[in-house]
C-alpha cells in the first residue's frame, strides 16, 4: 500500500478477534516481559531490539534496524494501541521463555530459526500474528530512512528533482 493503511488494517482485524487474543494473552501471561511504560509511551520492551535486528540486520550497504532507531519507532507505534501492546508483551515474553537465555542472547542461527518458525505459524495465534505485524511495521519504519536505501536507484525523496527520462 502506498501509505500506512496496513497499520490501520491490522488494528481492526485484531479488534475483531480481541476475545481470542485476550484468551491467548491470558494463557501466555506467565511469559510477559517487563515493560517500562507510562501513559502513551513505551521506553523499553524486552528483546524487541534483538528481534528487529534479526529481521533487519546490518549488511555491507545499510545499518541494522536499531541503528536507525526503528525500535523506538515501533515502541511509539505500539504505545498507541493497548491491544497491540498486549500482543507485543505476550509474544516477546514467550520468545524470551523458549530457552534458558533471553532471545537476544541466543546465537544468530537460533534466533533465525525461531523467527522462521513464527513466520510459518498460524496467523490467528500470537507467534504468527506478532511476526507478521512486527515485520510490516519494521519494514515501514526502516525503509522510510534514507540510510536504508543507500545504493538504490532512488533519491531520498521524489521531489524536488523527480526522475526525468531517460529511464533505461
Amino acid at each position: 500500500m502506498p501509505d500506512s493503511d496496513w497499520l490501520e488494517a491490522a488494528a481492526p482485524r485484531l479488534s475483531r478477534r480481541s476475545l481470542l487474543f485476550q484468551a491467548l494473552s491470558a494463557s501466555l501471561a506467565g511469559f510477559a516481559v517487563p515493560v517500562l511504560a507510562q501513559e502513551g509511551q513505551v521506553q523499553s520492551l524486552g528483546s524487541l531490539g534483538s528481534v528487529l535486528d534479526t529481521l533487519l540486520p546490518a549488511d555491507e550497504f545499510s545499518p541494522s534496524a536499531t541503528a536507525l532507531r526503528v525500535d523506538q519507532d515501533v515502541m511509539d507505534f505500539v504505545a498507541q494501541n493497548q491491544l497491540m501492546l498486549r500482543l507485543f508483551v505476550a509474544a516477546l515474553g514467550w520468545m524470551d521463555s523458549l530457552s534458558d537465555r533471553p532471545f537476544g542472547e541466543l546465537p544468530a542461527q537460533q534466533r533465525i530459526a525461531i523467527l522462521s518458525a513464527m513466520e510459518q505459524a498460524d496467523y490467528n495465534q500470537i507467534p504468527g500474528r506478532f511476526f507478521h505485524i512486527l515485520r510490516s511495521v519494521a519494514i515501514e519504519f526502516y525503509y522510510a530512512r534514507p540510510e536504508a536505501i543507500a545504493g538504490y536507484p532512488l533519491s531520498p525523496a521524489p521531489q524536488p528533482a523527480g526522475y526525468p527520462p531517460p529511464w533505461s
Binding site: M1, L115, G151
Partner: peptide, 27 residues
C-alpha cells in the same frame, strides 16, 4: 499508481522473508 515505486511497497507486498537474505532480495 498502486504504490510499487518505493521499498516499503516492495517489502510489504512483493518480497517475503527477513534477515540478510530479505535485504539482498529487496536490493
Amino acid at each position: 499508481e498502486t504504490g510499487l515505486n518505493g521499498p516499503i511497497g516492495y517489502g510489504t507486498r512483493l518480497i517475503a522473508g527477513f534477515g540478510s537474505g530479505f535485504k539482498q532480495a529487496m536490493r
